[in-house]
Amino acid sequence: MTIAISINDLRKTYANGFTALKGISLDVDRGDFFALLGPNGAGKSTTIGIISTLINKSGGEVQVFGRSVDTHVYETKLDLGVVPQEVNFSQFERVRDIVMTQAGYYGLPRKLAAERCEKYLRKLGLWEKRMDRSRSLSGGMKRRLMIARALVHEPRLLILDEPTAGVDIELRRSMWDFLKEINAAGTTIILTTHYLEEAEQLCRNIAIIDEGRIVENTSMKKLLAELDSQVFILDTDSAMEQLPQLSLPDVHVRAVDNHSFEVRIAASRNINEVFSRLDQQGVKVKSMRNKTNRLEQLFLSLLNENQGQGNV
């Protein structure tokens, strides 16, 4: 069995009549680091809620490691660790008690639970805070506590719903390293995130969900290869009197200010050609950066396409 999770024609209509999922299907391979992207209200959290049995589905099927979550409730739950979007532990309990209690719910004997608790609290930098009440933790610490809690029974599949929302850059990077480490150790990870850079950095495969439908489901490499152009901002050493004239097909230049300009270049073109033309014209480039995140560009174009189809 190479599939960690298989979702088939999953549907959800809430009691108020809102249809959050309109029949989504996707497979995530064992050992994968999978991104589930989508705008707010697209259906990501509903999908995760159904997988983790917090939301009742209206139709379709979910299998975790080949077993249906409907018929093999206990086995599939043992395989799952869930880190929700919102903080969902008691604000009055101590950090260690929260993790130990979760270990107990999964039937871990006390000695093993204590070892695992220490292991994950240390890994996530919370061991010094173990006797503190959880309400005294910072936002980033609370998120890490939820990750430690989800890992204490060492699930084969970890689902993280926006795990780094509101977390500062330094901490986010350290969480990425930690997630890469546990993925490398064999844990399949499904991640939803608003930070497209996060998905690009971490995930090998990706599904984009919008208005309850999967609009793209492919590998990150293939998706990024679909980009037909990239936009760079180039900063010059000195003020420009006029915009450089590159005269290259599929390359367009636009002024930003007198010290920088924008170059849109087709994916097929070599960027060295741009630099040699600039050199010929005596333009000295001091720095260069991507105008937009590449994935963000794709994400927005896919959503626009989907909404365009929906409006027809």
């Binding site: 983790s52 049995t53 917090l54 206990y74 969902n88 532990f89 008691s90 209690t101 719910y105 809690r149």
Partner: peptide, 18 residues
């Protein structure tokens, strides 16, 4: 109800506890 209100009841609901 407090656990429902704080959503910490989800700790139990996602676990395999019958």
């Amino acid at each position: 109800f407090s656990q429902k209100f704080q959503r910490s009841i989800e700790e139990l609901l996602v676990s395999p506890v019958p």
